[in-house]
């Protein structure tokens, strides 16, 4: 019914109206991409934050001269023992120097002799249970085992990530709001142009007894129909973009960038949610803007 409808006004013939589906498609696509990017980055930040908050990193300074890098470090066992009865502490994983070197490779490059450097020993302390370990206590115990040990509970990271996620989401919302405003402006322009073109016909409709709402509804339905067509185009574009991003995401190096590990259905949901939201939003904005614009203009006519 929305796609095929009889209009008393020849709105289909308006030049300006013909552009509306394409402009709406572009705007909807941009808005959906902004929203999806905001959502994806939000999810990513949340996962990242969850990841870092589930562990505490302890750096034991390198042993002094003469100690072989790959020899057994007695401080590891002492640290395990010191942490054993600390509430909130789960498994303690000690990375050997080779593992630490591998973690540094993406930044320092392979074959640069990272393994020859005096590297600190890295302990990853898993957080267990609902209560996080007392970081101050943990720091004291590690200091006793290895003076100068660095304990990082990633608190700063977590706060930064949360702040970043909030800013990204807010920015994405702001972008969507701007795009919606631009979409509304396009509709206002197209509707005003239609009103000017069909002024005589509108006057005839008025004179034979049409209410403002009768005329405004025709513009509203017509504009919503154009927005619907634009929305469909944007959904197709969005699907193609997601397919591209899905494959691009699979090839990301997880040591450099946190991966957005989503199931295919989650990818669909990630694209469909903003797509459908923007689609419905654009239809609503277009229809309501058209109706309001027409009613305001008609109020100045006979």
């Amino acid at each position: 019914m929305l796609l095929r409808r009889r209009y008393d006004l020849p709105l289909d013939r308006d030049g300006a109206a013909r552009l509306v589906p394409w402009i709406v498609a572009l705007m909807s696509y941009l808005a959906a991409v902004a929203l999806a990017a905001g959502l994806a980055l939000g999810v990513l930040a949340w996962r990242w934050s969850e990841g870092v908050s589930s562990a505490i990193t302890v750096l034991l300074p390198p042993l002094g001269d003469g100690a072989a890098a790959n020899s057994e470090d007695p401080r590891i066992a002492q640290a395990r023992q010191a942490l054993a009865d600390l509430p909130g502490v789960g498994a303690v994983q000690a990375l050997d120097p080779a593992q630490v070197a591998r973690r540094l490779e993406p930044w320092l490059g392979a074959g640069t002799g990272v393994g020859e450097l005096p590297l600190p020993r890295l302990l990853i302390v898993r957080v267990s249970g609902p209560r996080r370990p007392d970081t101050a206590e943990l720091r004291q115990r590690m200091d006793r085992v290895a003076p100068g040990a660095v304990v990082d509970d990633h608190g700063t990271w977590r706060a930064e990530i949360a702040r970043l996620a909030m800013r990204i989401m807010a920015l994405s919302g702001f972008a969507v709001a701007l795009i919606a405003l631009a979409g509304a402006a396009v509709v206002v322009f197209a509707v005003r142009s239609g009103l000017a073109i069909h002024r005589d016909t509108i006057e005839v409709l008025h004179l034979i007894g049409a209410h403002d709402d009768y005329i405004a509804r025709q513009f509203q339905n017509h504009t919503a129909r154009l927005a619907f067509a634009g929305g469909l185009i944007s959904l197709v574009l969005l699907g193609l973009t997601e397919a591209f991003l899905y494959h691009a995401a699979l090839s990301l190096d997880p040591t450099l960038m946190p991966r957005l590990d989503l199931q295919p259905w989650q990818w669909v949901l990630l694209g469909a949610t903003p797509g459908v939201l923007v689609f419905a939003g654009m239809m609503g904005i277009a229809g309501a803007t058209a109706k309001r614009t027409v009613r305001r203009a008609l109020a100045r006519m006979v």
Partner: peptide, 20 residues
């Protein structure tokens, strides 16, 4: 006359009834 050129004779005459 002010008939609406894009509408058929039938639709032109039907207009006052449709708006009502």
């Amino acid at each position: 006359f002010r008939l609406l050129p894009h509408l058929s004779a039938f639709d032109n005459v039907a207009l006052p009834l449709r708006v009502a």
